[in-house]
Design a protein around this nucleic acid. Structure first.
Length: 223
DNA sequence: AACACTACAGCGGACCCCAC
DNA sequence: GTGGGGTCCGCTGTAGTGTT
């Protein structure tokens, strides 16, 4: 299999996608609405309702994962003119509004869970330093390293999402303390965590916009 | 200890081929 | 002609290492 260079296959950066629903989110919403469906039903529903331009192959691949994971079940197959075959699925396990994140073999994926926990912990804690944030964001399923929490704080602070409520005191090791931060209420933009992209810019999927980039340092209000 | 940078693993989406 | 399966590529999130 060789991808044609000009076709630029592969995942696009979230800010290019320009939607607050991932393909999987849209597909899962369609499954929960239809309950019983074949692939064509689902593609039509998704394109009409949630996510214009979702690729048929994306639906196909996600259905495979859901099927392997036991979230949907094949209840029927039908033949077209005795040639092409189509599966009919039924929702077998409804885990709620959030689309299950699955690996190719159908087992749960923890990718991105760390950021979700950090974002939730910020809203929960009020004032926090990076150690407290990492501890609160960690649970049995996901371990958030302090350095990850620190990096996330750094970027959100630059993006103007966090207020520094207490500077760090590193002069004396005995009574030294870590800087404390607080999420600004007006920056609690929604349930989805702001993402630190590979090019180090901060993208808020709730607002569907880039809120800070290294080229626009002045947009960061260091308070 | 804190910060900066780089590399890697694995996921999501798209392309292509093949079976029916 | 249609749909399933395999594969590839770019991305994100995470881990590791070096520097200050």
């Amino acid at each position: 299999m060789t991808a044609t260079p000009g076709k630029n296959g592969g995942k696009k950066p979230v800010h290019i996608q320009g939607t607050n629903l991932s393909g999987q989110d849209a597909i899962w919403a369609g499954i929960r609405t239809l309950r019983e469906f074949d692939r064509k039903d689902l593609v039509i529903w998704v394109s009409n309702n949630k996510y214009r331009g979702v690729n048929d192959d994306t639906v196909k691949a996600y259905l495979q994962r859901l099927s392997k994971g036991g979230y949907i079940r094949v209840i029927d197959t039908k033949n077209y003119r005795g040639v092409a075959k189509a599966y009919r699925y039924i929702l077998a396990q409804d885990c709620g509004i959030h689309a299950p994140r699955l690996k190719r073999d159908g087992t749960p994926s923890t990718l991105g869970r760390g950021r979700e926990n950090l974002w939730r912990a910020m809203k929960l804690l009020g004032d926090f330093d990076w150690r407290e944030l990492a501890m609160t964001a960690s649970n049995d399923d996901v371990t958030v390293k302090p350095t990850e929490a620190k990096d996330y704080i750094k970027h959100l602070y630059r993006a103007g999402y966090l207020q520094c409520t207490q500077s760090s005191r590193s002069g004396s090791r005995a009574n030294g303390s870590l800087a404390k931060y607080r999420l600004l209420p007006k920056k609690n933009t929604g349930p989805r965590p702001p993402q630190i992209q590979r090019i180090k810019q901060v993208y808020d999927p709730n607002l569907q916009q880039v809120v800070w980039s290294p080229n626009e340092e002045e947009c960061c209000n260091a308070e």
